[in-house]
């Protein structure tokens, strides 16, 4: 992943100049660093839990088929931001969202958008693996069943293969999912998320509850997934973000998006001093 330095239009918190037109970064050599079409874009996103503000005017673009990572100290709003993208914050009664979140140009918080329909295009994997107490097969099939989509063995197999789990469970598809190990359960959750063929997969600290070997498998998996899906991942592990993401967004305490750009630039030469201090560990 050799990416050269390049100017990125969305560096400062208050930039509202992000446009939904495809972004092409002008740079000399490396092909990897070309930012493709923007899939999701937020504009001046503010989130309040009651009177407390969790996100401050966050404007961010997420390019398709890349891994975009959000890092930042605890409580800086990165999970809140993630949950805005698929309107999971709707389930929290005290949450209030202002601003726009655009998916392929359409504002997800408009009146006529059905959150349930939305979540069928934007899938989510959570921090703690949460397989249903059903068989492995039924877990993978669940999403398709509730969406009235067809379910057959082939689709289930494909999803499990994509999640690098097929070989380990192909003989025990009828067994309860709760008998799998933590790492396997998390890969099962990923399989069931991609079984419905979403456009975007959101991951909220997917490996933080796992041991290093399982974490490594998940990281490899995420890199593969980015070939087919747009992946947005929240992680408190900076090194993980450095390893697997193409773009990194840094949130700091108070819900402020301080910098966003190609991972290589953010980790080698960040624009903001605050980001530099955070990354080098000089402040939390």
């Amino acid at each position: 992943m050799s990416q050269d330095n390049m100017t990125d239009p969305e560096q400062s918190t208050n930039a509202t100049a992000t446009v939904s037109a495809p972004e092409v970064d002008t740079d000399e050599s490396s092909i990897d660093s070309t930012v493709g079409r923007t899939v999701i874009e937020t504009r001046d996103l503010d989130v309040y839990y009651g009177d407390e503000q969790a996100l401050q005017e966050v404007s961010l673009s997420i390019p398709e088929r890349q891994v975009t990572a959000m890092i930042g100290p605890s409580g800086c709003g990165k999970s809140t931001f993630l949950r805005c993208l698929n309107r999971m914050n709707d389930l929290v009664e005290t949450a209030r969202v202002e601003g726009e979140v655009l998916l392929n140009g359409r504002n997800l918080y408009a009146e006529d958008v059905d959150p349930v329909a939305l979540r069928r295009r934007i899938g989510m994997v959570f921090q703690q693996p949460n397989p249903f107490p059903k068989s492995i097969y039924e877990n993978v099939a669940y999403g398709r069943r509730v969406q009235n989509k067809s379910v057959d063995d082939e689709i289930v197999e494909q999803a499990l293969r994509r999640a690098a789990l097929w070989d380990e469970v192909k003989d025990q598809l009828d067994q309860s999912a709760l008998e799998l190990s933590g790492g396997q359960q998390q890969r099962l959750c990923i399989a069931r998320a991609i079984a419905v063929d979403p456009e975007v997969v959101l991951m909220d600290e997917p490996a933080s509850a796992l041991d290093p070997v399982a974490t490594s498998k998940i990281e490899d998996l995420i890199e593969e997934l980015a070939e087919d899906y747009t992946v947005v991942i929240v992680t408190h592990n900076m090194q993980q973000a450095a390893r697997i993401s193409d773009r990194t967004a840094v949130f700091l305490t108070g819900g402020e998006l301080v910098e966003v750009g190609p991972t290589q630039r953010v980790f080698e030469n960040p624009d903001s001093d605050r980001v530099e201090d955070y990354i080098t560990g000089k402040f939390g």
């Binding site: 992943m1 050799s2 990416q3 090194q239 450095a242 390893r243 991972t263 290589q264 980790f267 080698e268």
Partner: peptide, 9 residues
Amino acid sequence: CVDLVALQQ
């Protein structure tokens, strides 16, 4: 080399 150190630990 710098990229490898920064990004892959």
